[in-house]
Design a protein around this nucleic acid. Structure first.
Lengths: 111, 111
DNA sequence: AGATTTGTCAACAATTGGGTTGAATATGGC
DNA sequence: GCCATATTCAACCCAATTGTTGACAAATCT
């Protein structure tokens, strides 16, 4: 999960991913569209590849990169565990304060 | 979007967010549970706060932090734009190769 | 008011990470 | 086999970020 996040945290990499959303692209085209130098794109693609976000498919002397579904599914699952944070109004501040009071009662009895 | 990602990219911050998923917590408790020093937690909470991921609510001498729904909604919306990448089998490599051939035809005619 | 607890701020050292350059590898066409 | 194209690799510099320490601010309790 963390690997995915840190890979997507870099702006250029996020742009690359959003570009690849429209379909597979070779390095050169990514480089042109995003106005980045090729070695830079290669480096970023390497990071994305290590994170399992993209995969390569060589065609002639081109290396065509495309998105892999898995990390997006993972991200979705992770996000799902936060659903109640925003679907229910999930404050729970009161809950915490009550817990705190309970705790103080116990501590008070002990000492 | 990028602000959210970079905030969540740091492992400790991700842990903090996952801890807060279960409800609001004061800095000290976060510090204890995650075995981090308080200034470090404060610093990370600052980053999360700047990204709009958490908000504070002072109670007595405690500062209780909790998650804000918005960034999670944004993340969900962003992820949604990638749905077809993994719901439909979204290869499109052939599409790209055909585009490429069309392009070559045009170039060939020009020169 | 004084002592204690909770938390932030400021400054510093150490690490990480991005960008650039130049050389190296692989493929296709002549 | 040789040249052009597409891409990666390695080494370097620079900027941003993390973690630590010590001082500081606010609230609580006696």
């Amino acid at each position: 999960m963390n690997a995915i996040m840190s890979a997507l945290a870099e702006p250029n990499r996020l742009n690359i991913v959003e570009l690849l959303r429209d379909g597979p692209r070779p390095v050169g085209e990514i480089s042109n569209r995003l106005r980045l130098r090729q070695p830079q794109v290669s480096k970023h693609l390497r990071v994305l590849s290590d994170a399992g976000i993209v995969e390569v498919q060589p065609v002639a002397n081109l290396r065509i990169y495309k998105l892999r579904p898995q990390p997006f599914q993972e991200l979705d699952a992770w996000l799902d565990s936060f659903r109640r944070v925003w679907e229910e109004r999930f404050d729970r501040l009161d809950d915490y304060l009550h817990e705190l009071q309970e705790q103080e009662k116990k501590d008070g009895n002990k000492e």
